[in-house]
Design a protein around this nucleic acid. Sequence first.
DNA 1: TATTGTTATACTCTATAACTATA
DNA 2: TATAGTTATAGAGTATAACAATA
Lengths: 142, 142
Amino acid sequence: MGSDKEFAGSLIQLATAVHATFADLSRAHGLAPQQAVLACLLDDGPVRMCGLTELLKIEKSTLSGLVDRAEKRGLVRRVPDPEDRRSIRIALTDEGRATAGAFKEEIVRVLVKQAEQLPPETARQFRAALPAAAAAYWTALA
Amino acid sequence: MGSDKEFAGSLIQLATAVHATFADLSRAHGLAPQQAVLACLLDDGPVRMCGLTELLKIEKSTLSGLVDRAEKRGLVRRVPDPEDRRSIRIALTDEGRATAGAFKEEIVRVLVKQAEQLPPETARQFRAALPAAAAAYWTALA
DNA sequence: TATTGTTATACTCTATAACTATA
DNA sequence: TATAGTTATAGAGTATAACAATA
């Protein structure tokens, strides 16, 4: 079926566009894209390095570098973990919390506004199906 | 409304998952992710460098490096453009065409298969709304 | 002068492997 | 021994700025 190709093409196009929107907005807030992801994750409270490698699905050495750059930029700080002296927790600074809050608010606003330009019935279908679709593709990842 | 946050969260989750699926499959075919994008674009025929910068939305210097690596890997070759001696056209090699074909076939298969795990009515809604949604987010890009 | 493409430079993101410190 | 994290190294992807060749 040709429509399978069209479906896959649309899905990749949507993913690319959302990714690019996220990246552009990150930079507009003075954040590298992965720093924006990190800041959003930490907005609910500090997380250990080993927890972050699972949430971000990246290697621990990759994370060390990401946290180094975020720390140098004043976004996060490394906090000793009293329960396990091998471990450290990553917490947002005050500036990091403010930046994360502003970024999260605007990315939601932008993504919602773009969906509102769809025909009402299409928008309704899309918003209704999206949570289950996102969960299906997310849980299929290794 | 909390549901705007949930909508935006689901959209980012879907985009991230599709992106990761694409990247994983690229590497399984021996391609860096952007090389896979490049190969898919060129599967319809050669394209000038300046055309590729628009299609990929990247700077020309970034593209020079991407093409350098793809050429070194045997995926593409630079072909002089007889109509404009400043310009060059990028064409797939035989190996590049075979690789692009196999990759395109499998990415479609994988993305369709994952959608089939949704409840039938959700899958129907999602596939019905997706083309318009993808177009809306895509055209909103700068 | 304007366009096409490359090169130099610098930064982010990524992984593998070897290492230290603690459990 | 196993886990948490860092460092060294290498490569992909990104942009800006300066440049060469051609239109």
